[in-house]
Simulated scan of single mutants.
Amino acid sequence: MKAELEFLQNHSLTSVLRRELEALILSGEFAPGERLNENSLATRFSVSRGPIREVCRALAEKGLLELVPNRGVFMRRIGEDQAAELYDVRAGLFASAARFLATKVTAAQISALESLLDRMEEAVRMHSLDIYYPLNLEFHDSILRFAGNGRLHKAYSELVKELHLFRERALQQGGGLEVSNVEHRRIVKALRDGDEAAAMEAAFLHVLSGKARMTLPAGTGHSTGEATGARDIV
């Protein structure tokens, strides 16, 4: 019984540490290529190095960290070519989710998506990326959730997390928030119409539009409210 309790306690601790460290990574706490100090992290979370090491291994398997033998744990650095590959896969997954959802979307789900679009429109008028960005993430995640395929949702979410590591340049370019939300509305219209092909195409092209913006030279853009923060707004 004692061994079982210790296992549960350690497992719970590891789960909490994993969530906390992952949140720090995705928030930009560490720079690409930066070495993570296990001792500092252990002190920060008031734990021993063992759980920290275990969590780092788990996050390395998810593609967020990189383990270098005899050197330590480093933030994974994602280059433009790798980011482009992630976009291509993400486009396919998002398109599949939109197609699935078009076959069974409910009025309540359409209403929820349209409410998010209206709130994003207000953020556009305010030129506020800080307001727009979390709503954008919620919009995409809602489509994946509503599609009802857990494996697809999980795979898509992991790709989004990896793309958070791509911080080499601003991704909000070539049309910015306005273009992104116009594309969102095309997706929702196709879903409302129950048009599987149109929903799939609109979702696929939306993500590829984000990929195209990524390849523009830094600073390119012609939309008001464009920010220099490296955030993916597709």
Results as ranks from 00 to 15, higher is better:
residue 76 R to A: 08
residue 79 G to K: 07
residue 52 I to A: 00
residue 41 L to Y: 07
residue 29 E to N: 02
residue 24 L to Q: 15
residue 46 S to E: 09
residue 76 R to G: 01
residue 28 G to V: 05
residue 37 N to R: 01
residue 34 E to K: 07
residue 19 R to F: 01
residue 21 L to D: 00
residue 31 A to P: 05
residue 28 G to P: 08
residue 61 E to W: 02
residue 45 F to L: 01
residue 23 A to L: 06
residue 39 N to A: 04
residue 63 G to K: 11
residue 60 A to E: 14
residue 47 V to N: 04
residue 80 E to D: 02
residue 51 P to K: 05
residue 71 R to S: 11
residue 73 V to E: 09
residue 35 R to H: 08
residue 66 E to K: 10
residue 49 R to S: 10
residue 22 E to Q: 12
residue 39 N to R: 15
residue 72 G to V: 09
residue 54 E to I: 14
residue 26 L to T: 12
residue 19 R to V: 00
residue 31 A to S: 12
residue 61 E to I: 00
residue 58 A to P: 03
residue 37 N to A: 01
residue 56 C to Q: 14
residue 67 L to N: 04
residue 31 A to V: 03
residue 71 R to G: 01
residue 74 F to G: 06
residue 58 A to D: 05
residue 62 K to H: 10
residue 62 K to S: 02
residue 51 P to R: 08
residue 65 L to S: 09
residue 53 R to A: 09
residue 27 S to E: 15
residue 60 A to Q: 04
residue 66 E to V: 07
residue 40 S to R: 13
residue 75 M to P: 14
residue 31 A to T: 11
residue 50 G to C: 04
residue 60 A to Y: 09
residue 25 I to D: 03
residue 39 N to P: 04
residue 79 G to Q: 05
residue 44 R to Q: 14
residue 77 R to E: 09
residue 76 R to T: 09
residue 46 S to C: 05
residue 60 A to D: 12
residue 37 N to V: 04
residue 21 L to C: 06
residue 59 L to D: 08
residue 30 F to E: 00
residue 56 C to G: 05
residue 48 S to Y: 12
residue 26 L to K: 14
residue 18 R to I: 01
residue 29 E to Q: 12
residue 80 E to G: 01
residue 61 E to F: 03
residue 46 S to L: 08
residue 80 E to P: 12
residue 79 G to F: 13
residue 50 G to P: 10
residue 55 V to L: 06
residue 52 I to K: 00
residue 42 A to C: 09
residue 19 R to N: 04
residue 27 S to Y: 00
residue 62 K to F: 00
residue 71 R to I: 09
residue 72 G to T: 12
residue 63 G to M: 03
residue 57 R to K: 13
residue 65 L to I: 10
residue 45 F to K: 13
residue 76 R to F: 11
residue 54 E to F: 11
residue 17 L to R: 02
residue 36 L to N: 04
